[in-house]
Design a protein around this nucleic acid. Structure first.
Lengths: 220, 220
DNA sequence: ATAAAATATTAGCTTTGCCTAAATTTTAAT
DNA sequence: ATTAAAATTTAGGCAAAGCTAATATTTTAT
């Protein structure tokens, strides 16, 4: 069968896509290994398989990049992932910090009709519950140029529009601080020695590390 | 991890369950091989794995039966399959004859919360779009004693309540004859030489082979 | 410039799940 | 009761995808 990829292959394509998005250029074996929670040796092996199928360009020792075909395939997986996340949160009462794991499974379901109907059923959403854009059926990704909370200066305000680190721990932490999508925040103070920030959220003040503020996207 | 089964294992458990339902007693290697579209040798192998995990009782050359644990697991898969079929038909505009393949994939998604919320979202349906009962969360299956259309006598009426053969071809055939869930039918004539039936459906008369009438369940 | 450290790749093994061919057991037919 | 046919199991392979240990290449630090 043509156009059929294993779950593992799809996971690699998606991972390469994400790493390429933020780092650009060639994606390293070790970065992939870390993201996919596997060993470098296994990554090398899979990369060769993908290269044989013309899904990636691979030059030994110099990392890997998606081809046009590979990128297209990665985008259909991302699309499915984000549509399912939307479904889980908006129709099935999932909290936005507990959808990731299930969406990782659902994203591999093969059925063009299912994806199309799900999209329609949800009212063709443009963004998922984490504020990430949902690619359309032809693989166009409406990329809003994102600004990090860490880029704001003291006194500036921003509205939370997304998160980079979608780990359950991070999202739970944010929830505890009453920070979520569309939450308004004002930068009160920035510590020069570690770049941590004191931020006004509603009537509370919250201290956020540089790691945290790097992972929160805002619109001002 | 305990309580974790591969997709393949789940497929075998479900297949054994279905064959046990209609044939009772021990399920033969060849019956499984045919249903699962695989070879007898592969079945034997898998059966041994399942026996080691105490999901089935197996006596060489004498077929296989589910243990309590195995039956329970099979029922959770059946539950998921039928809930997803309901979702596809009732919310995503799928036709009841095109859901099977997709549900075969969705039934393997692992997430107790997802199943519970899906059930709630659908209004805790008791039957799936084919008229088959949906097991509840604790694995209780409300079994309505089913009667086959082929068991009716001339002149008797019946209301269609389910189908045994869920093949796409069969379901499409029924659709073409305007026969679906809850369709009322009246037996006009039975051919003695091949047991085929002439049936009144709405204002049309339809000729159904014995094979067909054996696979249509009715309530009278 | 070169040695040490960090990265990447290869080689060889493991498990799952399937296959074919050969051997065994059960069942059916004389 | 034998024996042929049918069903089942065993033996030996194969591909996907992972792992560890050993080797090779690139980068970094002296």
């Amino acid at each position: 069968m043509k156009n059929m990829f294993t779950q593992s292959e799809e996971n690699y394509l998606k991972a390469i896509f994400h790493l390429q998005e933020e780092a650009g250029e060639g994606v390293s074996t070790s970065a992939l290994a870390e993201l996919l929670e596997t060993k470098a040796a296994s990554v090398t092996e899979m990369i060769k398989r993908l290269a044989n199928k013309n899904l990636v360009d691979y030059k030994k020792y110099y990392g890997v990049q998606l081809t046009q075909t590979g990128r297209k395939q990665a985008l259909t997986v991302v699309r499915k992932h984000r549509l399912w996340e939307s479904f889980l949160v908006e129709r099935l009462n999932f909290n936005w910090d507990e959808v990731h794991e299930v969406a990782e499974q659902l994203e591999h379901i093969r059925s063009p009709k299912l994806v199309e109907e799900l999209d329609r059923f949800l009212g063709r959403p443009a963004y998922d519950p984490h504020g990430d854009p949902i690619p359309d059926a032809s693989g166009n990704l409406p990329k809003a140029p994102k600004k990090r909370l860490s880029q704001l200066k003291e006194g500036q305000k921003g509205v939370c529009k997304g998160f980079n680190d979608a780990s359950s721990a991070f999202l739970k932490f944010l929830d505890d601080q009453d920070i979520g999508m569309h939450t308004e925040m004002k930068v009160m103070q920035i510590q020069s020695f570690d770049e941590s920030m004191t931020v006004q959220v509603g009537k509370r003040q919250v201290l956020l590390s540089k790691t945290a503020t790097d992972n929160i996207y805002v619109e001002d």
